[in-house]
Design a protein around this nucleic acid. Structure first.
Length: 469
RNA sequence: CGGGAAGUAGCGCAGCUUGGUUAGCGCGCCUGGUUUGGGACCAGGAGGCCGCGGGUUCGAAUCCCGCCUUCCCGACCA
C-alpha cells in the first residue's frame, strides 16, 4: 500500500480531490434530498470554531444576536421588486400544512431582510433607537440546481447581520466596518486566507442592494470563491417595510439598512484554499485538534510518556488528542494527515531513550526533534509559526497566480490559471458579456491600491476577474 | 433546468452485450494471533430490497418504460 494515493491528486481532477477529502476526512455526507448536506462531527467542529471567532468579532462590532422565524409570508418577499425577482427561482414554498392548503403560502427563508425589516419598523421609533444592530445564526434554503457539499447546498448554515441607521453615511461606514473588521480579519487571521476586497459590479449585486462588497479568496485550482459579503441596502427595504424613525426635529425619516453574511461555504473554502494531495491542511487557529500525540507503538512506557505529554499540552491551552491506537503507525499517520491536524508529535522508544520526541508540521512536512521537557513551550510557539507561515504561503500563491493584463483576451487566457487584473474601463457591460461567454466573471472592483471603492463610477478602478465557484 | 456519464456490501468495481440454480472481487469491518519509526501479515467470519416503481418473460442485476439520486459541462445563483 505504501506510496499509493489515498486521494485523487489535485492535478489529476480537482473536483474529485475535493469530494475525496470531504469524505475521507469525515467532514460531510450528502443528505437524502438532492442538495442537502449532513455535516459530520469533524466538519461541524470546524464550523463551530468559525462560528465562535466570527461571533466574537460581530459582538465586538456592537451587534446583538436574535432569532427570526424560518417561515416567511410569501407576500413579504414581493414587497421589494428586485429582491423577489432575484430570489424567486430558488425559493422553497410551503403550500400545505396541517392537512390543508394554506390561504397564503409561506416561503422557507432564503435570507431574512424582509421579516427583519418588518420588525425593525415595529421596534424603531426614535433616532435614539438607532443604529439598530442585529445578527442571527440560522439555516436558510435556496433551491440549488447544481449543489456541491459546503460550497453550494440547498440548505446551509450561516450568520446574517441586519442593521438600520439614520444616515447613508453611517450605514455605509458600518457595512465597511463589518467587512474589514469582522470578515477580512477573520479570514486572514483565523483561516489564513488572503483576500481581494472590493465591490461587486452592478451585474453581480445582491438583489435589492445599492452596493455589495465581497471578500474573494483564491482556491488551489486558481478559481475564486466569495467567502463573505456585505451589502448597503440604501432605503430600498426601509421603504418597502416602512422603517421610519422620528428625528431630533420631530419629523419622520426613513432609515438606511445594511445586511451581511457568511456561511458554511467557508468550510469548503478552507478545504480548497490550503488542502494538498494528502488531504486537509488546517491553520491552527481554526483546527479543532491542533496537535496529535502519536504513540509509535502501543506499550506501557510509550503510552505513559504520551499521556504526560498531552497533559502538559492541554495545560498550555493546546487543543490536543492522543492516538495510542491499534493498527500500524503508517496508517494512523495518514489518517491524521487527511484530517489536516497542524502538528503531529511522534513518541517512540528510540527517541524516548534519549528524552526526545519528533514533531512534524502538516503544512511543510518538516520534522523537528524536540526534548521532551520542551514540548509544551515549543508546540505553543510552533502553532503560531504555522499559522503565519500558512498565511504567507497562501498570499504568495495568490500573488503568483494573479496576472496583470491589458485586454479581455489576455484576461481570458490568464484566468485559465488564476486571476486576472485589468482596468475596469476596459471591461464595461460588453466586456462582462464577453467574459461570461468564457465562464469568467468580474469578481470585484478595487482601487489601484487594493482598497474598497465607494461605487463603480470612481475613476481608475481595476477589475479582478476569474472563474469562480 | 438543458447536454453527457453513472447507480450491484461502508468505499471502489466486475457481471449485463447473448436473461437461467448459492451474484463475485479488492479495500474496509468483526474475531483470534503475530505486529507497530510512513497506509502490516496470517487464519476464520459478518455484511446485498443488484437505486425505486412498473412492464416483457416459465424465469430479470441482465431486456423495455417512468421516476429518484450522484458526478461532469453549461445556464442560473448574496
Amino acid at each position: 500500500m505504501a506510496g499509493q494515493n489515498v486521494l485523487t491528486p489535485q492535478s489529476e481532477d480537482f473536483p474529485k480531490w475535493y469530494q475525496d477529502v470531504v469524505a475521507k476526512a469525515e467532514m460531510a455526507d450528502n443528505g437524502p434530498v438532492r442538495g442537502t448536506m449532513v455535516i459530520r462531527p469533524y466538519g461541524y467542529s470546524i464550523w463551530e470554531r468559525m462560528q465562535a471567532e466570527i461571533d466574537a468579532r460581530i459582538k465586538r462590532a456592537g451587534a446583538q444576536n436574535a432569532y427570526f422565524p424560518l417561515f416567511i409570508p410569501q407576500s413579504y418577499l414581493s414587497r421589494e421588486a428586485e429582491h423577489v425577482e432575484g430570489f424567486s427561482p430558488e425559493l422553497a414554498v410551503v403550500t400545505h400544512a396541517g392537512g390543508e392548503e394554506l390561504a397564503e403560502p409561506v416561503v422557507v427563508r432564503p435570507t431574512s431582510e424582509t421579516v427583519i425589516g418588518e420588525f425593525m419598523a415595529k421596534w424603531i421609533q426614535s433616532y435614539r433607537d438607532l443604529p439598530l444592530l442585529l445578527n442571527q445564526w440560522a439555516n436558510v434554503v435556496r433551491w440549488e440546481l447544481r449543489p456541491r457539499l459546503f460550497l453550494r447546498s440547498s440548505e446551509f448554515l450561516w450568520q446574517e447581520g441586519h442593521t438600520a441607521h439614520a444616515t447613508a453615511a453611517d450605514a455605509s461606514a458600518y457595512a465597511m466596518k463589518i467587512h474589514v473588521e469582522v470578515y477580512n480579519d477573520f479570514l486572514e487571521r483565523v483561516l489564513a486566507v488572503p483576500t481581494y476586497l472590493g465591490i461587486k459590479p452592478p451585474s453581480e449585486r445582491f438583489a435589492g442592494a445599492t452596493n455589495t462588497m465581497t471578500c474573494e479568496g483564491m482556491m488551489r485550482d486558481g478559481k475564486a470563491l466569495q467567502m463573505a459579503t456585505s451589502h448597503e441596502l440604501g432605503q430600498n427595504f426601509a421603504t418597502a417595510f416602512e422603517i421610519y424613525y422620528q428625528n431630533e426635529e420631530g419629523q419622520a425619516a426613513l432609515c438606511f439598512t445594511t445586511s451581511w453574511g457568511s456561511s458554511t461555504r467557508l468550510v469548503g473554502g478552507l478545504i480548497m484554499a490550503h488542502g494538498d494531495d494528502d488531504g486537509l491542511v488546517l491553520p491552527p487557529h481554526v483546527a479543532p485538534i491542533q496537535a496529535v500525540v502519536l504513540a509509535v507503538r502501543d506499550d506501557d512506557e510509550v503510552n505513559a510518556a504520551c499521556q504526560s505529554l498531552s497533559d502538559a499540552l492541554e495545560a498550555a491551552d493546546v487543543r490536543v488528542t492522543r492516538d495510542h491506537g491499534r493498527g500500524s503507525f503508517g496508517r494512523r499517520v495518514t489518517d491524521w494527515e487527511i484530517k489536516g491536524v497542524p502538528l503531529r508529535i511522534e513518541v517512540g522508544p528510540r527517541d524516548l531513550a534519549q528524552g526526545l520526541v519528533t514533531v512534524v508540521r502538516r503544512d511543510t512536512r518538516e520534522k523537528l526533534t524536540v526534548a521532551i521537557t520542551d514540548v509544551a513551550a515549543t508546540v505553543a510557539a510552533l502553532l503560531e509559526t504555522v499559522q503565519s507561515d500558512m498565511f504567507a504561503a497562501a498570499r504568495r500563491f495568490r500573488d503568483e497566480n494573479t496576472h496583470d493584463v491589458a485586454t479581455l483576451d489576455e484576461a481570458v487566457e490568464a484566468v485559465q490559471n488564476g486571476f486576472a487584473r485589468l482596468a475596469w474601463d476596459r471591461v464595461g457591460a460588453e466586456g462582462e458579456a464577453r467574459l461570461k461567454s468564457e465562464a469568467v466573471t468580474v469578481r470585484c472592483l478595487q482601487r489601484r491600491d487594493g482598497s474598497i471603492p465607494a461605487d463603480e463610477s470612481e475613476p481608475d478602478l481595476v477589475a479582478i476577474v476569474a472563474k469562480s465557484y
